[in-house]
């Protein structure tokens, strides 16, 4: 993956190759600027690699056009951001319903309500993002990511903007939803204790994969 800046190209990622299995939880770790978020963005089809291919369920997403990629993303990929990225002009419920509506499904309100209930926000359905705390906003974002039942869920530093206790609660919810929906979860974090909950850890430095480890299995309860 290369980026053009000030007349010269910068290699962000190179020689990266790995496989993730269905239902697996993979954590990508590394210092700031190592290319973690870019790698996640490539997996979501938000960026295009300069070379190489990315296959998700037999589909090489690097060959898709922009529109095909958008359609693929809306059905197969859920994304949770560090900065939540809720639409400020929509309520919590409307934010959650939006991905379904983008697919032309207009009957998602009940399902959205249930999801918001499962993240403990049944009393915040009609609040706007500015009326919600950071933790609540990230929980809405979780509900939004899961509403389309995506086979692949990507989370980019989901606790990066939260205090530790709220962060832990959000992570528990993320795991819970992942288990409930059976999604594959790829997580970017620089929090090693969070990474340790994954089945596999990919370590990046300066755009190169330097290590792939399998942490000892820990129960989610003991980490919380």
């Amino acid at each position: 993956m290369e980026l053009q800046a000030a007349n010269q190209s910068v290699k962000i990622l190179q020689n990266i190759s790995f496989e993730v299995f269905t239902n697996e939880v993979v954590a990508i770790v590394g210092p700031s600027g190592s290319g973690k978020s870019t790698l996640l963005g490539l997996l979501a089809g938000l960026d295009r690699p300069t070379q190489g291919s990315i296959r998700i369920n037999q589909t090489d997403i690097t060959t898709l056009t922009e529109t095909e990629m958008a359609h693929f993303r809306r059905k197969h990929i859920g994304y949770v951001f560090q900065a939540f990225h809720l639409l400020p002009t929509l309520t919590a419920l409307e934010n959650v319903v939006l991905p379904l509506e983008l697919q032309g499904i207009s009957t998602g309100t009940l399902r959205a309500k249930a999801l918001l209930q499962s993240v403990g926000l049944e009393h915040r359905l009609h609040h706007y993002p500015v009326q919600l705390s950071g933790g609540e906003q990230q929980r809405v974002a979780l509900a939004r990511a899961f509403i389309v039942r995506p086979p692949l869920l990507l989370a980019d530093e989901p606790t990066g903007n939260l205090d530790s206790s709220t962060g832990a609660m959000v992570i528990d919810l993320l795991w819970e939803l992942h288990q409930q929906h059976g999604s594959t979860l790829i997580l970017v974090t620089h929090d090693m204790s969070l990474a340790a909950r994954a089945q596999r850890i990919l370590a990046l430095r300066d755009g190169v994969m330097v290590n792939e480890t399998r942490p000892p299995l820990l129960s989610s309860g003991s980490e919380a």
């Binding site: 979501a44 938000l46 922009e66 529109t67 958008a70 359609h71 993303r73 809306r74 059905k75 990929i77 994304y79 951001f81 990225h85 639409l87 400020p88 939006l98 991905p99 983008l102 697919q103 939004r144 389309v148």
Partner: peptide, 12 residues
């Protein structure tokens, strides 16, 4: 907001 909508699967 446009970038967010695109990550949610909205096409241009």
């Amino acid at each position: 907001i446009i970038a967010t909508l695109k990550t949610l699967g909205a096409d241009s």
